[in-house]
Design a protein around this nucleic acid. Sequence first.
DNA 1: TATGCGCATTAACTTAAGATAATAACCAAT
DNA 2: ATTGGTTATTATCTTAAGTTAATGCGCATA
Lengths: 178, 178
Amino acid sequence: MTFHQLLKEQGTFITLEKGAYLFKQGELNRSLYFVQSGLLKGFYISENGAESVKSFILANDVIGNLTALVDNQVCTFNVIALQEVSLIALPYDTLITQTKLDHGLASGVIELLMKLAIKKERREYEFLCLSPEQRYLKLIEQSELLMTQVTQIDIAGYLGITPVSLSRIKKRIEQGQQ
Amino acid sequence: MTFHQLLKEQGTFITLEKGAYLFKQGELNRSLYFVQSGLLKGFYISENGAESVKSFILANDVIGNLTALVDNQVCTFNVIALQEVSLIALPYDTLITQTKLDHGLASGVIELLMKLAIKKERREYEFLCLSPEQRYLKLIEQSELLMTQVTQIDIAGYLGITPVSLSRIKKRIEQGQQ
DNA sequence: TATGCGCATTAACTTAAGATAATAACCAAT
DNA sequence: ATTGGTTATTATCTTAAGTTAATGCGCATA
């Protein structure tokens, strides 16, 4: 069995309208979600209320709160629908049970997790080694479409800077080009 | 079979003296390494020669260059021994082959990868949401021992700032406390 | 059509980090 | 003992990001 087959057989279909939360920081949540269509945003809220964007979640992505799933803790971040979204939900425990029964599935999950780790490693690299301006240039180069679907506030939140700063960066880049 | 049993049965024992490289950016490398003892440093070198510290690698950690292993590409970072180190090397292909044969091993690898992903997520969070000063405070709180074993240059490299900045941060903290 | 709200830009000011260089302390090796 | 190299601190100056506030724009809705 593949991961996608498991989703179809054991998953439950969900839709969220724009602005609805998939889960919130502080809640318990024991499911994984596969995005069929739409766009979501994962974000942290700090004590002072500031929002930092962890990730944009697109069609064909899998999303879940690892800490909540693996360590059975409370969610460490929020996920909200930026558009109407359709998802397949799968309880984490079902996945674990099935990977223990089905060897092919286990291999598929290993592949998924490797790709996830590589993705995280790339983002870590960008924060560690690149300036906000360099991160912004990489982002627009890699996801032009996304840039048209999210606000500058969210892009700034994703880059770890303020919207004001992002506006200045854009201006710097423009002026450097002409 | 567990991951550790596989290491013992199929792994090869390696020692590195202080200053020796386990692998270098740009090289090909197809192995995973389990650290039995000692301390290593993973780091990126940018085009301008600047060094950024990806991680400190301690006893009982597993290290390997994911991109190089999974995508069969060239290493994206360096690993150097900060002390004399003893390791067990395991070819990645052996691991993959064995996970396909041994279901228990596959489950163990899934667990390992989940923990890895959680670790990466935490570091991502720190870069995204915390200031250099806050990251420094967290680091000394979490790994007092490490702080005595690495230079301030490397700590700064790990925090994504310059040694001069770290020195200033330390001073700020001292002055704030008294 | 008018009102209000969210978004993006801009300005003014503050704060912190980068760059460079000088200095001192320390360690290692000749 | 002396030399040289690395490390950490400090000073000076530059650059960029944070903060706050004002402005203008566009969109939705009353």
